[in-house]
Write a protein that binds this DNA or RNA. Structure first.
Lengths: 212, 212
DNA sequence: GATTACTTGTTTGCGACAAGCAAGTCGTTG
DNA sequence: CAACGACTTGCTTGTCGCAAACAAGTAATC
């Protein structure tokens, strides 16, 4: 089984499997090291070796430290996007915002290491000269656009007053999420307080997005 | 003039002046390099030389890169605290929050480089293993405490309904500020949008802190 | 003469990259 | 269809440049 069959259309598998596996193992290694040691103190050498390979593989595969971090951000970002689209499917307006907010909180609880690493990289990407700045900026823009669309569709569906400024509220919502995530990163132990912040955010959104 | 007078009580001046001056020049150099190149790419060597000294002075004075950044955060943090106490003196409740919000926006406009460097360091301090994490955490706690006090004093003074949860609203306010600052750092050009976010925040606070 | 501000020399460790090796892949031919 | 050989790919090892950290030195200040 698994012999070198196929000549085209389907890609060869065995080598591809190997890289997929080493990618996955290095992702886990990187997440763990980022959460434990931080971005600065994490070395490409350690990532390779913790994943069970040589000291050089991480550098070879991703080209640079920034390349590795890009990969981490993309991977976990996609993970989140899948979850988000699943949860908000078919929903609009306040309902969609509420579902997204709840999913975000759940994501923090269920995969804390992945989410922590993701946002540690996120916040670190702010300064100039960060290789994965664009990746983060793209995710951020996409998030803001999605929220705006939900609000607009809520307005069009007659469930939200046309008087609200969708763009402004979307910006405010995204900023609030960032703020909450910051609090969570700084005080990982205070989960109940974080949950209450998510609740407050939902309440505030209901205030800001009244029925017509 | 400026001879070695005084024997006690007043500190010696000439040497102290020298360090004060080199501190100040290195602070400016560090701010500039952080804003231009980012934290990672800023080197102690460049800081010393840009300040007009040798390649080694920054390392010698602050002990380590983290030590330099601690100094930067403390210096600009104190700058802000002075401004904040000046602006909110004698005010309580929504009035104090409004004044603080306005001052924060003004600070971003008037000393953008200092504030940018400050918050770039702030966000970078989140991950583990950051030497100035405690400094930032302290500022953050103090900020939250101040806000809570303003709200409590507003309640005691009969200008805010006793039904509001001062702690929760304070947390929410600080999170919102963080979120707004994030947006500003990422999109420096969109100042009008940032200003509108500050306005929205003030409006939201008025909604959340109603009169009794 | 002692302390202090600052400079210079040296070590160590990481990121980056080039060169190498072995396993895997694929076209071709008998 | 099996077996050979050319090529590709995944991974490892060797090396260089550079920055942080620190020790030892010099000259100004006290």
């Amino acid at each position: 089984m698994g012999q070198p069959a196929l000549k085209s259309g389907v890609l060869p598998r065995r080598q591809a499997d190997r890289t997929a596996q080493s990618d996955a193992r290095m992702l886990e290694a990187a997440v763990r090291l980022i959460v434990e040691r931080g971005i600065e103190r994490t070395t490409l050498k350690e990532v390779g070796e913790l994943a069970g390979y040589s000291r050089g593989l991480a550098g070879y595969r991703f080209g640079s430290k920034g390349g590795l971090y890009s990969f981490v951000v993309k991977s976990i970002g996609e993970e989140w996007i899948r979850e988000l689209t699943r949860v908000t499917e078919g929903k609009v307006g306040v309902e969609a915002l509420t579902a997204a907010t709840d999913a975000h909180y759940r994501f923090c609880v269920e995969a804390p290491d992945h989410v922590r690493a993701f946002y540690i990289l996120w916040f670190e990407s702010i300064g100039p000269g960060s290789e994965y700045k664009d990746v983060i900026a793209g995710i951020h823009r996409r998030r803001q656009r999605d929220v705006m669309e939900w609000i607009r569709m809520g307005i069009d569906g007659g469930r939200i007053s046309p008087a609200v400024n969708a763009e402004k509220v979307a910006r405010q919502f995204c900023a609030a999420i960032i703020g909450i995530v910051y609090q969570w990163l700084v005080n990982p132990g205070e989960l109940p307080e974080i949950e209450s912040m998510y609740s407050e955010l939902k309440r505030t959104m209901q205030l800001l997005l009244p029925a017509p």
